[in-house]
């Protein structure tokens, strides 16, 4: 087995909100709490969870857009947890990020050519002709035409803009790309194009992805392994097929059952678990297991004792005192 590309060890991130003059004073948002996992080269790790579960914060911590409150990040064996901006620069070539709203992340006053060339100008000493040919090559790779190079972002549809964002991300031949909801803002008919493009690129350039999304069917499609997050922690982790066929955590089970399936027969056989209430606030997370306030099978123990993320079977981890046995859902 090869060495992991990325190791995330016991990462926590807290934000302060409010001001000293507001009624509640300064409060702490526990965005991430004790998150650990590894990512192997060439795989896609899917991060799923509902809004406020910390998946986007985690993505930003991995790319060091945010500083960690505690914990360690190791990329290709190097500890990058506390590298300064300058020390981080060579790493930035190797770790890239693609955002949900391609329009908001592309400077509207610059032409596509310059948007894609920007990382090349910053990180390499390529000549202008080399850059021009590389930009043309990148446009071709992501399925855009060379005449698109002189246009501005607003002249493109959402799907095309996401292609530009992807071209920018792969310009430096990165090893790891963090994709933060890359298809959520797109129409269904365009989503599939981008999902396919990402799969092609991964195969062609041996890329490693961390794919953050709330759409479970998309995550299942693209991921090798999946980590399910709830209120700042990973509650379950395993191979994509395992997670979907035998969810072990009650939250994973409810989450999967809540997805409406465009298939009338599947719909009938699917017994939906409707969770009560909303996701609690990460300012005051519940005691014990953070899911116990909404869990249909919570016991007394879940209220007081927090279940650790434990290996249940090889490659499968669950943070639950009473996980669902594999044969129960088969």
């Amino acid at each position: 087995m090869s060495a992991p590309l990325l190791e995330v060890i016991d990462v926590a991130k807290r934000f302060a909100v409010g001001s000293r003059f507001s009624r509640q004073g300064v409060r702490t948002v526990h965005a991430l709490d004790g998150v650990s996992f590894t990512v192997m080269p060439g795989e896609t790790l899917g991060l799923v969870g509902e809004s406020g579960c910390g998946k986007s914060t985690l993505g930003r911590c991995i790319t060091r857009l945010y500083d960690l409150t505690s914990g360690t990040l190791r990329f290709a064996g190097t500890d990058i947890t506390s590298l300064s901006r300058r020390q981080m620069r060579p790493m930035r070539r190797r770790i890239q990020m693609v955002f949900q709203d391609p329009y908001a992340s592309l400077n509207p006053r610059r032409r596509v050519r310059d948007l894609i060339a920007e990382p090349l100008r910053v990180h390499t000493s390529m000549s202008e002709t080399e850059i021009a040919s590389r930009v043309a090559e990148l446009l071709d790779i992501v399925g855009l035409k060379s005449e698109h190079a002189l246009r501005f972002p607003h002249e493109f549809s959402g799907g095309q803009r996401q292609r530009i964002g992807i071209a920018r991300a792969i310009a430096m031949n990165p090893e790891l790309i963090v994709l933060d909801e890359p298809v959520s803002a797109l129409d269904v008919s365009v989503q599939a194009q981008i999902v396919n493009l990402l799969a092609d690129l991964q195969e062609r350039f041996n890329l490693t992805y961390i794919f953050i999304a709330h759409d479970l069917s998309v995550v299942r499609q693209v991921s090798t392994r999946i980590a399910v997050m709830y209120l700042g922690s990973i509650v379950e982790m395993g191979s994509a097929d395992d997670i979907f066929s035998h969810p072990a955590h009650p939250y994973t089970q409810a989450l999967i059952s809540a997805v409406p399936v465009p298939d009338l027969d599947a719909q009938r056989s699917n017994k939906r678990i409707v969770l009560t209430g909303d996701v609690p606030s990460p300012i005051n997370p519940p005691s014990g297991c953070r899911f116990h306030t909404r869990c249909p099978v919570a016991q007394e123990r879940c209220r007081s004792e927090r279940p650790p993320l434990m290996e249940q079977s090889p490659g499968r981890k669950v943070a639950c005192h009473y996980p669902i046995a594999a044969d129960a859902t088969a």
């Binding site: 269904v188 599939a192 999902v195 069917s217 998309v218 499609q221 994509a240 979907f244 399936v261 465009p262």
Partner: peptide, 25 residues
Amino acid sequence: QALLDSIPPLTGEKPRRLRAIPGTP
């Protein structure tokens, strides 16, 4: 038909590629 085909399935065999609709609306 194409709209239904382009949605990734939640159960069963994963297709290697999704059947996407080319182009844009």
